[in-house]
Structure formats: structure tokens, C-alpha cells
Amino acid sequence: MNPLSVVARTVCNLFAWFLAIFGIYVIVHGHLTPGGGFQGGAVVATFMAFLLVAHGGEKMQSWVRKDRFTLMECFGLTLFISAGLLGMSKTFFFNFLAKAGGVFGGVLPIGPNAGALNTSGTIALMNLSVGIEVVGGLSMILLYMFSAAHPQEPMGREESGHDR
């Protein structure tokens, strides 16, 4: 696919980074604010969609590598399953990390409060793993679809998007 015009490329280059920051914020603060791993991962994948639509598939293929995203997806799912299987003697997800333990083992006061980032036990870990998995998976889908699309528009034109 041919890249879009200079105006569209500049706007996408600027606003894609705001999308990436917002998505990472939604993933990391999943246990405090609305959102979670899936929503934040979808927003970060929208960052990849912005750059793909603006710059075309061939240029993005030279910037990023597909196997890194495969690795991200497999790592996220493996982290999810292994953290769930840690306490299989009682139930799924009930392990020593739940509620208190590890990095996210802060004590949460009951009642309306502002919350702290280092609380919630396994939930923050699950948010991170699902977020990594969704970012890898949706970016993989977009990269494959953009690399397999053979453009039917006349080749040799430098830019497209204002061609009507």
C-alpha cells in the first residue's frame, strides 16, 4: 500500500504516541481505574493501526518484526496460565500472590479510597499479561492483513489518499 499524504502522516505521527501512552496507562492502572488488559491492549494496537494506515505496509515491515509480536503474545498467554496454575491445589488463581504477596502486595483499606498502585495481588499481574497478549495478537492481525493486501491502485504514484 502506498503511504498517505504528508498532512495525514504528520498528524498520525503526532497522535499515535498519545494513543500509546493512554493504552499503557489503562493497562497499568487496570485495578484502579476503568479499563483493563483487553481495553488497553486494543488502544495500543490502535497505535499500530495509525502508523500502518499512514505509512503503508512495506515501510512498517522494515521498522518492526513480526516474530517479536508472536513472542509477545505467547509470553503473555504463558504468564497468564502459569500464574493461574501456581495454586492449583485449591482453585485456579488462588495462590500465594493473591491479595498480599509479591510486588503488588500492599494492604488496601476497605471503603471508598483513592487506592494505591501496589495493591491487588494477582489482578495487576493478570492485567499486565493480558495486555501484553492483546497488544501482540491484534498487532499481528493488522501486520498480516496489511502485508497480504496487494494494492489494485496504479503503482508508481508516490502518495495516495487524495486521489478522487
Binding site: Q39, A42, A45, T46, V53, L142, M145, Q152
Partner: peptide, 19 residues
């Protein structure tokens, strides 16, 4: 994220691929 961002991008690439 999904409805307004990703599916629009996928529709646009499908349109430009079909021509």
C-alpha cells in the same frame, strides 16, 4: 478502541486491496 479504531483500519485496508 476496537470499533472506532481497529475495525476502521481493517475496512480501509480491505477497500484499498479490493480497489
Amino acid at each position: 478502541g476496537i470499533g472506532a479504531g481497529l475495525s476502521t483500519a481493517i475496512y480501509i485496508v480491505a477497500l484499498r486491496a479490493v480497489g
